[in-house]
Design a binder for these strands. Structure first.
Lengths: 346, 346
DNA sequence: AGAATGGGTTAAAACGTTTTAATCGCGTAT
DNA sequence: ATACGCGATTAAAACGTTTTAACCCATTCT
């Protein structure tokens, strides 16, 4: 009963007393067709409620109008907002999104996921997985040649890859410079896991700012946690133990900054009086922490849109058989949201 | 150059001196094939790096092993975690996820989105859009007959639909009862937009608990905001103006509860001393608010997994031409995470 | 010995499109 | 008149699979 329910292009053709090819031409606009027959065809389409089967179309066109997104860590704020941006832009350009999630940051299931995407004939892939450890070891120029156009998010630039990322190092500089301008002199950093490339970038930014201000950037001002508020609280506790003279801290994301605030509340250490705090991410809630958190804002939706745009361009090129444009690296720039937690005049 | 790159099943067949059908049989396991030839085929597959084209397979099988997910409000905590749950279960069952986002909760683009999913031949659809206003007006028994199996999340149960949702009313009862047990007597509620079905459910739960304790549930204890911390802060400010005798408040999500805390900090009103606060969602950060927030926990990942499971079952049934099982409603139950913000003994 | 069984294999027909190459009218230039 | 050109249309050949129905060739059963 539902086997025959699918109404096909030849049904429409028959109904309009015309050939299937003509119906196709009307629908895709690929070749001109006389006004009178066009009208007949469109009527038939309407009447039969015809809806083209995109699978069949993709099969012959060798293009599925689908882009594969493989993401990791949607539970974090960044990847999520980026995904939303991707979806918006994709929808605008007429692409659908095939979503796969990696459940571990290491490169375990890379091959399986990639195989799956290829088998489903995606036109291109956005690799929205953070670089942690050597989980991007598989990304080599040779390997990329065997794949459809790929776009990488947030990884250390490599030869032959085109990517889009925010400039984490610049963001960290912004944050730390602000603390320096507010008169702070002993500025710690609360890192995420050092295996993450982004973390190392932010650490470098911290060092940049301190160096150029002639301030100490000693290793015992650095502490590492797991991105969570709980971890952040524990880590900053140790840090304060080690360096009681600390007068500011830069946390590599907002939840950890929240952990810092929590720690301060418990120790009755006033923020920003005794300790300035600045975070990274600008989650919507951060403005309502107590005190409201100064933090680094990233244009995450932009990032997602840019990723789709870049990929789209590559896909178009390959479709027309042209030479691919040389790999590019596109940086987006973060900005600082100044709030009360670091004691500068607003 | 890349036109011919695709290696097809007949290439494999030729290479193994066998027919295409046989290759298919060895790969799908649909029919028995002699051990010796199987080995020959597998060798050929290996050697040629053959990868079946799932589009072609789907075309003939009339089943794409894809489920469409249309979601709204990924920027909220709930929908996001649910999506992650769906992806996990889908991956486990061998489905891919085709993701579409609605950008407005009203029923604007419903038809377009639905058309797109149908055209792409999804096997089933998960409608993960909150019920707000009459945006589910299109969901009628008649309409559903024209569609592939559908599963709804978080909407008012309707005849003919199968859905999965958490019992919001029960969750609210839990929260409010806990406040009552802590000795509170004048308990306000900070609602999200009343157009949302979930909000009305939580409101009903609040009323349930107050009624059965013989406490006042007057309309001037109810205030409405927009889910955001900012909105929550504004709304609770008004509420306190109106009812200075308020001694507890139940916020319908954690960000709004954060807004309440923020408001209290600014007015030097102690929590839980003067005002108890409880939230809804159990976002990871809520444990690190100041004071740590008592809140209602929902099994969100479970919810997503359950959704995929249910849909999978329906798909299987239809595939085998059986009668669909009668529509069911599956409720998951929330639980209370007790922390310091409501002043009960821990 | 001849018929029936049955496992293994295959050629051909689907699945629903787009594209290619050929065909058909028809007006215009030779 | 014949040839030519040209726009609109079509029949048939792709696209890469699975499935159906027929076929072969050993066994086994009468």
């Amino acid at each position: 009963m539902d086997r025959k329910s699918q109404v096909t292009i030849v049904d429409v053709a028959r109904h309009a007393r015309v050939s299937a090819g003509t119906v196709s031409n009307v629908l895709t606009g690929n070749r001109p067709v006389a006004a009178s027959t066009r009208k007949r065809v469109l009527c038939a389409v309407e009447e039969l409620c015809y809806r083209p089967n995109l699978l069949a179309r993709s099969l012959v066109n060798r293009s599925s109008n689908t882009i594969g997104v493989v993401a990791y860590g949607l539970e974090y704020y960044g990847p999520l907002r980026t995904l939303v941006g991707m979806e918006q832009q994709a929808a605008e350009l007429g692409y659908s999104l095939l979503l796969d999630l990696l459940h571990r940051p290491d490169g375990q299931d890379v091959d399986a996921v990639l195989e799956g995407m290829l088998a489903r004939q995606v036109d291109g892939i956005i690799w929205a997985v953070h670089e942690v450890g050597d989980n991007h070891g598989w990304v080599t120029e040779a390997r990329l040649l065997t794949l459809p156009p790929m776009l990488f998010l947030t990884m250390e630039p490599r030869v032959g890859t085109t990517m889009v990322a925010t400039d984490n190092r610049a963001g960290a500089r912004l944050a730390v410079q602000h603390l320096i301008d507010a008169g702070r002199r002993t500025i710690g950093i609360l890192c995420g896991p050092m295996t993450w490339w982004e973390v190392r970038e932010r650490l470098a930014g911290w060092q940049d700012a301190l160096d150029s201000a002639g301030l100490e950037a000693s290793p015992d001002l650095v502490v590492e946690a797991d991105w969570s508020a709980a971890g952040g609280e524990r880590a900053v506790f140790q840090l304060l133990q080690r360096r009681p003279d600390l007068d500011a801290i830069f946390a590599c994301n907002d939840p950890m900054a929240l952990g810092v605030l929590h720690c301060c509340h418990r120790r009755h250490c006033s923020v920003p009086g005794e300790l300035s705090v600045v975070g990274f991410d600008d989650t919507p809630e951060s403005a309502f922490f107590w005190p409201p958190l100064t933090t680094v804002h990233q244009p995450l939706a932009e990032l997602g849109r840019a990723a789709v745009d870049q990929l789209h361009r590559q896909i178009e090129l390959r479709l027309q058989g042209e030479e691919p444009e040389p790999p590019t690296v596109q940086w987006l720039f973060p900005s600082l949201k100044v709030r009360k937690s670091c004691g500068a005049a607003l």
